[in-house]
């Protein structure tokens, strides 16, 4: 029986969980900071940065 799919019979195809990459330090930092957001706790969410962004001149 698959761990992800639980039931009373065996399915034709097994469901395989993808390898989960361990949380990076960057992800851990941003997740932890988000919980305490406010005041001087502010941060750059690096994956959301629009690198091509140019302010209007």
């Amino acid at each position: 029986m698959s761990d992800l799919l639980k039931g009373n019979f065996k399915t034709k195809n097994e469901v395989v969980a993808p390898e989960v990459a361990e949380e990076t330090l960057e992800d851990r930092f941003e997740r932890t900071a988000l919980k305490r957001l406010g005041g001087s706790i502010a941060f750059v969410s690096k994956k959301k940065v629009m690198w091509e962004f140019k302010p209007k001149s």
């Binding site: 698959s2 992800l4 195809n13 097994e14």
Partner: peptide, 9 residues
């Protein structure tokens, strides 16, 4: 994974 589940049977 949801796709795999739908394809499981």
């Amino acid at each position: 994974v949801t796709r795999q589940v739908l394809e499981a049977d």
